[in-house]
Design a protein around this nucleic acid. Structure first.
Lengths: 341, 341
DNA sequence: TTGAAAGCGCTAACAA
DNA sequence: TTGTTAGCGCTTTCAA
C-alpha cells in the first residue's frame, strides 16, 4: 500500500520545484515547452493524479458540479443528467449525482454536503416536499452558482431552465378535445411546485378556450404514483358523473389510470382517453401506447450546465438567466379515438 | 459573498482552540460534555459545515463512496444505488454516482477522478467494453477498498457481490421447457462479461439436463439493445428452422423480440415464448407481460456497501468476500403457454 | 522562465 | 480535559 504520487515527487525526480510542476501540468503560459513536455511525460509515466482535495482546498472550490434530482430512475432526470455530463465533461468538471427520493430532509442534507465538499456549482430540481427555499440561502451567500431546472423556486432572481409546462398541458388537453373528449379530468401534484401548477393552468386554459365548463370534481390532487392513478380513476369512474378522458401531470398516475380502465373492461381510447406527462420510456410499451408530453431532458441538462459555466466565467456579475423550452406532445393510441360521426 | 465559517471562527467565538472544536464536533471522548454542547450549539447557530476538502486532505481520504455503473436508468442499477445509499448514509458516507454509458474510457477516467478526489472506496459494475482490469491496479495499490458487483472481474482475490446468473438462466429455460417449448434460442452479450457467460451456461445446462440438443444457430451474440433483439428475432423467424421460444440475457433485446413478433402476427406466448432478464419495470407493462429474472438490486447494493464498511473497519486485513444471491424468476404471460394436450 | 515561501482548513501527536 | 504545533498537497504571490 504505497502512498500516492505527488507533485513533490515529480519535482524531485525532475530536479525542479513543485510550483513549476504545478504550472506545467496546468499548461501555464510562463513555462517553457521543454519543461512542460518533461513534466507531462513523467506525470503520465508515474500515473500521477492530481489530488483534488489539496487543489480544492487551496483554490477554495473543487471542479465538480452537484446535480440534485428527486430520482435518477425517471427517464426525464436521467436524460437531464446525461445532458449535464456531456457539457461539463468538456470543461473538466466531474458531476456528482444526488437523489433526494423526493424528501425535503435529503435535499437539505445534500445541499450541505455539496457545500462542504466545495462544489463549483449546484444544479437542482427540488423535491415534492420542498415548499421553502431557505436551505439555498447559504449557497447564494457563498457565491456558489445555483441553477434550478424543471421544478424551480418561484424566486425570480435565479437561474432556471424549464419547460413551458402550461403550453405542454394546453397542447395535451386541446388534443383530447380535438378527439372528441368533453369530460376531461386532471390528475395534478402538489400545487406549490411550479410544474404542477402550470400544467393545471394549461389544462384550465384549454378547457376555457374551447368553451368547456370546469368541473372541480374532475380535478384531483395526489402524489402521482401508479397506485394514486389507479385509485382515483376508480373513484371517478364509479362516481355519478364519470369523465371520458384523463390528463395526468405524470406518466405514472396516467399508467395507473390506464391499468384500472383495462382491468375493468373500459376501452381506451374509445370509452376513455388517457394522456400522461414526461414521455417515460414505458409510455411507448403500454397497450395502447400512452400519449405523453416530452420534456427535452437532455437539452435541459445541457442548458443547465452551460449556464453554470457562464456563471463561473462571469464571476461577480450576476445576471440570472431563464431558459424556457416548449415541450412536444407525443401522440399515441391512448387518446387517438376514432370519432363516430 | 462572505467566506464560509471555519473551525477557527467557532474557536475564536468560544474562546477555545480549533483542535477542541474539531474534537467536540466529532464527539471525541476526551472532550467535556459542556464543551461539546457549547460547540455543537454554536456550530448549528452559525450554520457551520465541515470543509470536506481540508478534512480529507488531512486524513488522506474523504467520506465518500464512488459507485460506478454502466447506466443509471436501468432499474437494476438504480435499485443497487438506492441500496448503497441506504447503508452508507447511516455511516455518514456520501455516495458519488458515476455512469460509464458502457464505455471503457469513461470507466478509466472515473477511476482516476475518484482516486484523485480521495474516495474512501469504490463499488463498480464494469462496462460492456471492459476486458482488462489494469485500471484497477492503482486502486488496489493505494489500498482503496474495491468491491465489484454484478459484472465482476474474473480475478478471484477480490470482493464481489453477484447474482448466481447460471441459476437464474437455468430456472428461466426450465420454465420454458415446462411450458412445452422445445426450440429455445438465446440472446447473449459479450462473453468476456461473467454475467453473460454464466447465463449462457445456465441455458446450455438446462437444455442438456432436459435432453434437448443444442443448436448453435439458436445462440446469438449481440449488444442486447431493443433493436438488436428486433433484428435477430426477425432473422431467426425467417430462417429455415425458426425457434419456438427465446431466452434473452436482457429485457431490452427480449422486448425487441416481443415487438417484432407482435408486429408480424406471431402470437406470444402461443407461437413463441419470450423470457428476458433483469425484471425491468417495463416488463410488467408489455402485452403480454414479459417473464423475467429479478436480480435483487437493492440487496446487492446493500451488501456492497456493507462489505465496503467491513473493509474500512478491518483496515489492513484483506479477506476478500464473495456474496452470491439466487435470483428469482418472475413468470408473466409471455411464456405462459396453454399447452394443448 | 523558474524558485521560495506561505497558507487554504483541518486533524492528531505531543505537551500541559 | 484542553492547547500547541506541524503538515496533508496544492496554488499563487513575490522575488530572482
Amino acid at each position: 500500500m504505497k502512498k500516492r504520487v505527488t507533485i513533490q515527487d515529480l519535482a524531485k525526480e525532475l530536479g525542479t520545484t513543485p510550483s513549476t510542476v504545478s504550472r506545467a501540468l496546468r499548461n501555464h503560459a510562463a513555462i517553457s515547452k521543454s519543461m512542460k513536455k518533461r513534466v507531462i511525460e513523467l506525470a503520465k509515466k508515474r500515473n500521477y493524479q492530481v489530488n483534488a482535495m489539496a487543489s480544492g482546498l487551496r483554490v477554495g472550490k473543487s471542479k465538480t458540479i452537484g446535480v440534485i434530482v428527486p430520482r435518477i430512475n425517471r427517464d426525464f432526470f436521467s436524460n437531464v443528467i446525461a445532458g449535464v455530463e456531456d457539457i461539463s465533461f468538456e470543461s473538466g468538471y466531474t458531476v456528482v449525482i444526488c437523489q433526494t427520493h423526493d424528501r425535503f430532509e435529503k435535499e437539505k442534507q445534500y445541499i450541505n454536503t455539496l457545500i462542504g465538499s466545495g462544489v463549483g456549482g449546484i444544479l437542482v430540481s427540488v423535491s415534492l416536499e420542498t415548499t421553502t427555499f431557505e436551505h439555498f440561502d447559504e449557497v447564494n451567500r457563498l457565491g456558489i452558482p445555483l441553477i434550478f431546472f424543471d421544478r424551480v423556486s418561484t424566486n425570480s432572481s435565479i437561474n432556471k431552465i424549464q419547460n413551458n409546462d402550461k403550453v405542454g398541458a394546453y397542447k395535451a388537453v386541446c388534443h383530447l378535445i380535438d378527439n372528441g373528449y368533453k369530460k376531461i379530468a386532471h390528475f395534478s401534484g402538489p400545487e406549490h411546485l411550479n410544474v404542477y401548477k402550470d400544467r393545471k393552468d394549461g389544462y384550465l386554459e384549454a378547457l376555457e378556450k374551447n368553451g368547456i365548463a370546469i368541473n372541480d370534481a374532475f380535478i384531483v390532487h395526489h402524489d402521482l404514483k401508479i397506485e394514486d392513478g389507479r385509485k382515483d380513476m376508480q373513484r371517478l369512474m364509479e362516481s355519478k358523473n364519470p369523465p371520458d378522458a384523463i390528463f395526468s401531470s405524470s406518466d405514472y398516475s396516467a399508467l395507473g389510470a390506464l391499468l384500472y380502465l383495462k382491468e375493468n373492461g373500459f376501452s381506451v381510447p374509445n370509452d376513455v382517453g388517457v394522456v400522461g406527462y414526461s414521455n417515460e420510456k414505458f409510455t411507448a410499451l403500454t397497450s395502447p401506447g400512452l400519449t405523453s408530453v416530452d420534456q427535452h431532458g437532455s437539452e435541459i441538462g445541457q442548458y443547465a450546465a452551460k449556464v453554470f459555466l457562464e456563471e463561473i466565467n462571469n464571476k461577480g456579475k450576476k445576471v440570472p438567466r431563464t431558459i424556457i423550452l416548449d415541450p412536444n406532445l407525443i401522440i399515441r393510441n391512448s387518446s387517438n379515438r376514432k370519432l363516430d360521426k
